[in-house]
Amino acid sequence: MNSTEALMEKWEVQLRKGTLELAILAALQQRTLYGLELLKLLQSLPSTTITEGTLYPLLDRLKRDELVDAQWVQEGETRPRKYYQLTPLGNKKLTDLTRLWRQSVTDIEWLLANPGPQPLPNTGV
């Protein structure tokens, strides 16, 4: 692997780490899922792929922070599964993080859409 690829990978890891909590809260939006379902959902998207070893401890932390709730449910013959859903606090956090995320995307998109050398309208740079 050359150094550019290594740097890209590092950046991707950092980005994924930073957005993971938002990804999990968003995945649980108006939805009740158990660990394996949530894992498969996240693994089906290219930028939110995570491992079991990351997901479960993180769910544990979200539960301790009262952002998610969990219950054991047993349906028919299947083995009991632990289902997660957002709490009101989790919903609020999702709203807050969504706002920050969208702002960040808007800002970066704006910078990308406004290259030099023409001076920028507001800042005069």
């Binding site: 660990g35 394996l36 079991e52 479960y56 544990d60 083995r79 009991p80 599964r81 632990k82």
Partner: peptide
């Protein structure tokens, strides 16, 4: 609780 959840996951898979 942690063990039970991971055990459930493993046998589910």
């Amino acid at each position: 609780e942690v063990i039970r959840e991971i055990e459930s996951h493993l046998f589910d898979v």
